[in-house]
Amino acid sequence: MLHIRIVAVGKLKEKYLKEGLQEYIKRLGAYSRLEIMEVPDEKVPDKPSDTEAELIKRKEGDRLLAGAGEKDFIGVALDPRGEMWSTEDLAEQMRGWELYGPNLVVFFIGGTLGLSKEVHAACKAKWSLSRLTFPHQLVRLILLEQVYRGFKVNRGETYHR
């Protein structure tokens, strides 16, 4: 069984998002071991300098990587500059992860400024959910829905309704 860990910057506060996450956590229980870890975010000034922005991303990145835990994992950076995957592409990636391991896949969701270079370097894949910009809190829900859909596709179960 594939073990999925989502490590995200910031605490989820919105009730509707928490309820949506709980629904997909419940659904994914039949397919995967799932963990969601939140790491503290850094206060971001209105107009941070490049140096300030890099420092903030590095601090958050260190926390994200610590949240990955084990050393043997497949890292996936959620990044708007990443590769665009269709649902079927994600399902294919997931099949490969299940077959060829390691057993742990860690999805990294950065904060307001994105992910650090160190997080990118630790990841085997960089995935863009869309060309649209989403709040990083909403990305968690979109990610869980797509992972659930990927499991359904791989098992030949209907979900495209």
Score class of each variant (00 low, 15 high):
Leu2Phe: 03
His3Val: 08
Ile4Gly: 01
Arg5Ser: 12
Val7Trp: 05
Gly10Met: 08
Lys11His: 12
Lys11Gly: 03
Leu12Phe: 03
Lys13Leu: 08
Lys15Phe: 08
Lys15Arg: 15
Glu19Ala: 12
Gly20Arg: 00
Gln22Asp: 15
Gln22Asn: 14
Gln22Pro: 00
Gly29Asn: 13
Gly29Ile: 04
Gly29Arg: 12
Ala30Thr: 13
Ala30Phe: 12
Tyr31Thr: 03
Ile36Glu: 01
Ile36Asn: 05
Met37Arg: 15
Met37Asp: 13
Met37Leu: 15
Glu38Gln: 11
Val39Tyr: 07
Pro40Cys: 04
Asp41Ser: 15
Lys43Pro: 11
Pro45Thr: 09
Lys47Arg: 15
Lys47Cys: 03
Ser49Ile: 03
Asp50Gln: 13
Asp50Tyr: 00
Asp50Leu: 14
Ala53Met: 06
Leu55Thr: 14
Arg58Ala: 15
Arg58Asp: 14
Lys59Ala: 12
Glu60Leu: 04
Gly61Arg: 02
Arg63Ala: 12
Arg63Gly: 07
Leu64Arg: 01
Leu65Met: 09
Leu65Ser: 09
Leu65Glu: 10
Gly67Leu: 09
Phe73Pro: 01
Gly75Lys: 04
Ala77Met: 05
Asp79Asn: 04
Asp79Leu: 01
Glu83Gln: 14
Trp85Arg: 11
Ser86Cys: 03
Thr87Gln: 11
Thr87Asp: 14
Asp89Ile: 08
Gln93Ser: 13
Gln93Gly: 10
Met94Ser: 01
Gly96Ser: 13
Trp97Ser: 06
Trp97Arg: 05
Trp97Val: 09
Glu98Arg: 12
Glu98Gln: 12
Glu98Cys: 02
Leu99Ser: 15
Tyr100Glu: 12
Tyr100Cys: 01
Pro102Leu: 06
Val105Asn: 01
Val105Cys: 12
Phe108Ile: 02
Ile109Met: 06
Gly110Leu: 02
Thr112Asn: 11
Gly114Leu: 04
Gly114Arg: 00
Leu115Arg: 03
Ala121Thr: 09
Cys123Tyr: 03
Cys123Asp: 00
Lys124Asn: 10
Ala125Asn: 13
Lys126Met: 11
Trp127Tyr: 10
Trp127Phe: 13
Ser128Thr: 04
Ser130Phe: 11
Phe134Val: 03
His136Ala: 06
Leu138Trp: 10
Val139Asp: 01
Ile142Trp: 02
Leu143Gln: 07
Glu145Ala: 08
Glu145His: 07
Glu145Lys: 05
Gln146Asn: 11
Val147Leu: 15
Arg149Glu: 13
Gly150Leu: 06
Gly150Glu: 07
Gly150Gln: 03
Phe151Pro: 02
Val153Phe: 09
Arg155Ser: 12
Gly156Val: 07
Glu157Phe: 10
Glu157Val: 11
Glu157Ser: 06
Thr158Met: 13
Thr158Pro: 14
